[in-house]
Simulated assay, not measured.
Amino acid sequence: MVVGSCVSLQFGSAFATMIFPALGTWGTTALRLSIAALVLLAVCRPNLRAWTRSQWAAVLCFGAALAGMNGFFYAAIARIPIGIAVCIEFLGPLALAAVLSRRWKDTVWTGLALAGIGLFFVDDLVGDQPLDRLGVLCVLVAAGFWALYILTSERVGRLVPGTGGLAGALAVGAVLMLPFGAQTVPPIIAQPGLLVPALATAALASLIPYSLEFAALRRLPKPVFGVLLSLEPVVASFAGLLLLGQGITALGVCAIALVVLASARSTLSARRRR
């Protein structure tokens, strides 16, 4: 289930890049979150009126984190290869783990991931395809929102029963994206066929991976889940290669290996502390 979630999410992101020219990165994000929110709200039917002020505050923060993480990540993969973007984005949870633990080992794993990401910039200097600086900045912002996503999702999980909190957060994210979603209306009216890849993106990048992750967490210990989730940069690189023709150099392979190792070791280190 975890591997299926990784494959669905990363292939969904790669698939989304194909509709960026028509809908834009932020418009695609808005449409994806809106479709996912409508489906989950229809399925879960959370009792929104019964939520307390603290529950609503947690869901609002979770929704803002979802919107920022997805929006800036899509803006990044429009400019840099998806495998590199996912690797850099892993700095968010790794840095969060290092800050919360205050143990030197977690700082080492974050440093190892930084070293791996540094190899991308070495490749940038010696290669013939320089990295887009704005794309790198966008994915760094997405990494910060990913760290916020982890904190807010844990809080929502504690305060809101079931998957209603996720459905509500997706709805909040969709509302925050409405100004960007308006730009998708004229292209969709002109080309109704765009709804097909938009629906596919919402299913692959939101509904399927979230459902699989929720089911997997009920069957797997969290450390095992975290280690398997560390495979995302590898899956993203394959998705970029197969769907987008984004090749990867030897230095890039080494960089991805270092980030995956750092993420897996950080997860195992947290397990030993518990």
Rank of each mutant, 00 (worst) to 15 (best):
77 I>M: 06
70 N>M: 06
130 P>K: 11
122 V>D: 09
113 A>I: 10
80 I>D: 12
110 T>F: 13
102 R>I: 10
106 D>K: 07
151 L>E: 05
153 S>A: 15
135 G>L: 03
111 G>P: 04
152 T>S: 13
123 D>F: 02
151 L>A: 14
140 L>N: 10
152 T>I: 06
130 P>W: 11
66 L>D: 02
142 A>R: 07
78 A>P: 14
68 G>Q: 03
103 R>K: 12
147 A>V: 06
106 D>T: 08
66 L>W: 05
118 G>P: 12
130 P>A: 08
146 W>P: 01
119 L>E: 02
105 K>D: 10
89 E>K: 14
90 F>V: 15
96 L>K: 10
138 C>L: 07
86 V>W: 07
133 R>Q: 07
103 R>C: 02
69 M>G: 01
141 V>H: 04
148 L>G: 11
120 F>W: 00
101 S>R: 15
93 P>K: 05
95 A>F: 13
109 W>A: 13
105 K>N: 10
100 L>R: 15
115 A>F: 00
80 I>K: 11
118 G>A: 08
106 D>S: 13
91 L>C: 14
74 Y>F: 14
127 G>W: 06
106 D>Q: 15
141 V>L: 06
103 R>Y: 03
95 A>L: 15
75 A>F: 08
90 F>P: 09
86 V>C: 04
154 E>T: 09
155 R>G: 02
111 G>Y: 05
147 A>Q: 01
121 F>I: 07
134 L>I: 11
149 Y>P: 07
84 I>V: 15
89 E>G: 10
121 F>N: 12
107 T>P: 02
123 D>C: 01
90 F>T: 13
81 P>T: 12
146 W>L: 11
82 I>M: 05
139 V>D: 02
125 L>H: 09
77 I>Y: 02
144 G>S: 00
104 W>R: 04
139 V>F: 00
80 I>E: 08
100 L>H: 06
117 I>N: 00
91 L>M: 14
151 L>F: 11
71 G>N: 08
154 E>W: 04
78 A>L: 11
103 R>M: 07
137 L>F: 11
92 G>K: 05
109 W>E: 09
85 A>Q: 09
146 W>E: 01
112 L>E: 00
157 G>Y: 01
84 I>C: 02
117 I>K: 00
88 I>G: 14
150 I>H: 01
105 K>Q: 15
98 A>K: 08
135 G>D: 11
123 D>I: 05
130 P>I: 04
99 V>W: 15
72 F>N: 01
154 E>L: 14
129 Q>D: 07
74 Y>D: 09
146 W>Y: 10
97 A>G: 10
155 R>Y: 04
85 A>I: 04
149 Y>F: 15
121 F>Q: 09
124 D>A: 04
95 A>E: 04
131 L>R: 01
103 R>V: 05
83 G>Q: 03
77 I>G: 09
94 L>T: 05
143 A>H: 12
84 I>A: 13
96 L>T: 03
125 L>Y: 10
104 W>V: 09
153 S>K: 03
79 R>T: 08
78 A>M: 07
148 L>T: 14
82 I>H: 05
